[in-house]
Nucleic acid binder design. Structure first.
Lengths: 204, 204
DNA sequence: CACGAATTGAACACGAGTGTTCAATCAAGG
DNA sequence: CCTTGATTGAACACTCGTGTTCAATTCGTG
């Protein structure tokens, strides 16, 4: 999974593209070989199975995004601002890289690594925001809230991918709605959701 | 599509079950025939294609749910109460009939009839609630809001299907969060989301 | 009870994808 | 320039699903 040789890297990247546009089940070895610019036999000698390939691609994507978002949070202490930015990062990125967006949209609900990426990021901030009085909700609602947040982000990504909304509008709207749902006063929610969004940091 | 003979009805019902549990692409004619308790040849002489069969099943399901929810709204004038109940109807039904829930969860985002079911129901109430001052949002946010609502309901259905939450909790939480996002005051949102939920009316 | 329509289930010819093998070819470092 | 390891692409045997046909049968209705 770690330390891929160049051929394996090409195969993984090709797999990412194909999974994003066709879904797991429509990708066959022949397509994959062609997309990677490699012979069929090479694919078989470089991957174990489609399953493990998909798992590797998904968890790599989750890891990369998680790290970049975390890094950007170093400079922000307000949990509400972090949440709003996090939401908008996802939506902006889906717009800037529509394959990335399609991948997330297709698999975020069903894949454990991707679900984990969403929820681990948000949980700590949700709890700290609650105890600092920034949010108003009951702790038993945490799971419902996490679900609402990730679902809304996915829905919003869908909207952007389909071209029904710009990422700016959709991202700010979604962040604002989520903050409101968490009990942040209306004007404040709007303000937090519309500040200038910084660039997503690169890693290593 | 209308007026199915008994054999066609059996096939459609079997298709519903299979689509719900295996997804569109994993259903083949043989499975379908067996599930319907019918010979392979009979399936071929009773459906045009898998595509049209799926479309028929989905739109039938959308129509049925839409009518029942609409009927239940006759006795409610408050748009916020209607919305809260509508959300909870979906979530409760997904719990009571997990195949129905699985079907919705799998296809609500990708199928036009199902998307329509969600949005047409909500749009008018959203707008009337806005003009009556029950909600606070900007009209340009309507699409983002519809997306947030339907995504949240789907996420919540997932939670219930997976057994992470009861339908009661999940339904009330989701309804409450949505109302808050729309600008309904916190205590009022909670109250509206936790009233006794009536039975969903039958049709014809 | 007899007739026509629907259903049955087996048979056939296909196409598509899989997993595996292997001799030929290539590329790069010693 | 030679060796070694990876890559190539064609070939093989196999499975599964499709779409279609059709004689035999069942079933419902008049």
């Amino acid at each position: 999974m770690q330390s891929l040789n160049p051929t394996q890297r090409r195969i993984h990247q090709a797999a990412f593209r194909l999974f994003a546009e066709k879904g797991t089940l429509q990708v066959n070895i022949l397509d994959l070989a062609q997309e990677a610019g490699v012979a069929r036999g090479t694919v078989y000698s470089n991957i174990e199975s489609m399953e493990t390939l998909f798992e590797a691609v998904a968890s790599q994507l989750a890891k990369e995004m998680h790290e970049r978002v975390s890094k950007s949070f170093n400079s922000l202490s307000d949990p509400a601002q972090r949440l709003a930015n996090g939401i908008r990062f996802f939506i902006r990125r889906a717009h800037e890289d529509s394959q990335w967006g399609a991948f997330i949209h297709k698999f975020a609900m069903s894949n454990a690594s991707l679900r984990e990426m969403f929820s681990s990021q948000a949980t700590t901030d949700l709890l700290s925001g609650l105890s600092s009085g920034r949010y108003r909700f009951q702790q038993e609602q945490l799971l419902s809230i996490l679900t609402m947040i990730s679902s809304s982000v996915l829905g919003s990504i869908f909207l952007v991918l389909e071209g029904h909304k710009t990422w700016r509008e959709s991202g700010s709207d979604t962040a604002e709605l989520v903050l409101r749902a968490l009990g942040v006063p209306l004007e404040e929610a709007k303000a937090l959701a519309t500040v200038e969004l910084p660039a997503l940091p690169l890693i290593d």
